[in-house]
């Protein structure tokens, strides 16, 4: 997702403005000039300043353009798969349990990277089991059991 400097600069200006405004509304500590509002407001002003500079292209001469062609929009959406899978993991892991959810995550990711089923299926079984052994058994992280509890 390559955006122009104007767009990212404008986003920063908006964000800085919001944080300065939000900061200024924080309640002050009675009897003290310097309260919780100072820091967010300073950062906010700083962000507004940087955003403006970026939007007007100052400092651009230091940048080196990234190599490689920009992928199309639809292809670019593929990049969203990992975070979406993480969110699905959060939603499902308590109900389905760690082993099943993790297997699903690994399987989908492996297939998305173009793995053949011959690689993807064993990976989807071995990786969750291995990580469960390390984190659940060895390090005693309480990974949820859900539908399929680990036999150990």
């Amino acid at each position: 997702m390559h955006l122009s400097d104007r767009v990212t600069g404008a986003v920063l200006v908006a964000l800085g403005g919001l944080s300065a405004w939000g900061g200024s509304r924080l309640p002050a500590v009675p009897g003290q000039d310097v309260g919780p509002a100072v820091f967010p407001m300073l950062i906010g002003f700083g962000l507004v300043g940087c955003g403006l500079l970026i939007a007007f292209g100052i400092g651009h001469s230091f940048e080196e353009e990234e190599e490689g062609s920009a992928p199309g929009w639809l292809y670019g959406l593929r990049a969203l798969l990992p975070p979406v899978l993480l969110l699905l993991y959060v939603l499902l892991v308590d109900r389905l349990g760690f082993l099943l959810t993790a297997a699903g995550l690994v399987l989908v990711m492996a297939l998305a990277f173009g793995a053949r089923p011959r690689l993807a299926l064993p990976l989807a079984i071995l990786a969750p089991v291995g990580l469960h052994l390390i984190f659940g058994k060895l390090l005693r992280v309480p990974l949820p059991d859900g539908l399929l509890a680990a036999p150990w």
Binding site: L105, V106, M109, A110, A115
Partner: peptide, 16 residues
Amino acid sequence: APRAAVMPVILLLCAV
């Protein structure tokens, strides 16, 4: 080591 095997495990490691 194929990326298709490494990257899914990395993502799972991130979650766990």
